[in-house]
Design a protein around this nucleic acid. Sequence first.
DNA 1: GTCTATAACACGATAGAC
DNA 2: GTCTATCGTGTTATAGAC
Lengths: 195, 195
Amino acid sequence: MTEAVPTETQAEIADAVRKALAKHGYARLTTAKIAAESSKTEAGLYYHYDSKDAMVVAFLESATGFLKRQLEELEATGPEARLREACDRIFVKLEDESRRRTNIAVMELLAHAPYNETLQGPLLELESSNLEVLQGIVEDGIEQGVFREVDARGVAAFLLAAASGSTGFYLALEMEEIGAPLHAQATSYIDSLLV
Amino acid sequence: MTEAVPTETQAEIADAVRKALAKHGYARLTTAKIAAESSKTEAGLYYHYDSKDAMVVAFLESATGFLKRQLEELEATGPEARLREACDRIFVKLEDESRRRTNIAVMELLAHAPYNETLQGPLLELESSNLEVLQGIVEDGIEQGVFREVDARGVAAFLLAAASGSTGFYLALEMEEIGAPLHAQATSYIDSLLV
DNA sequence: GTCTATAACACGATAGAC
DNA sequence: GTCTATCGTGTTATAGAC
């Protein structure tokens, strides 16, 4: 679980993949488009990675770190407030263009994972890491008597699933009017966890 | 909203697209693979559709009909039982290989929609149709005094989002152990809607 | 309506100079 | 480590016979 620290070049390539995915999506991603978003040429990328998918994996690893930190570095202190704040972060807003595009990219990779073994491990890592952080917050809440004796992992998965699902019709299809009601129901669901 | 009835050939091609997507995913979908799943050659497909994406749209339209019928033809009669049954259907089980692959395919198309205008309309139609049916059930429940005065559309969207999200880590990544807990939380959430 | 053949191009990846 | 040039292959879509 101790991740290797990427070099500056590797980080730059991962970021170029992120930008290229944000512009074109995975189905239309090419090494030429990754190169266009970086300071290198196409051949230059292949000095650092053996294949296009290896570059995508580099993006996924950097995204995992980013998402994990986002959920760990909350400002709130009590379990209830922390869960609500975490919820605010996983339910990305349509206006937050950069997060929006990143979430959509991860969703496309996730949906393609059954057909591409290379992506499976890194994506499992990404999802497990998110799940674990949320589960920890819920467990704290139960221990401290704030939440009922719920299934912490189930609750974490349910919230994460709702947030991921909202990426589909709210973020990808831009169903604007559904964002607020969705978030409101997530809030109601958290209410129902309280003792 | 009155859909054109597809010819037999069109239905066969839509089904070939479904099978090809199930085997290879959208990012690796080619017209040759669609032809391989049908009784026609590649050139034959182009007599019926102008482009690969037009064939994918044919698949989406047939999937919309299938999913809509699935939610409309419930056995249960009361709003509560109907919502629970609908929930059982949208939370697809890992063992249900055919539904699993179809849901993953729709998810990949959804995530690619921002980059492909052709897919947007048909996908919006598909999601709206699901949303509408669920919303109708919740509204009935409120009118009949079974559910609290909740936001019917928000509740429908939240359940649908949770189900779609479960397609990501449960169906696509095959996180087996998360299926039951997820469904259990959906059930708890429905409990919380009761008066 | 369906076929064979192929045009026209895009793509992933490598060779070899610097 | 990065470049230019290019190889081989896969891909969409069409032409034209039947």
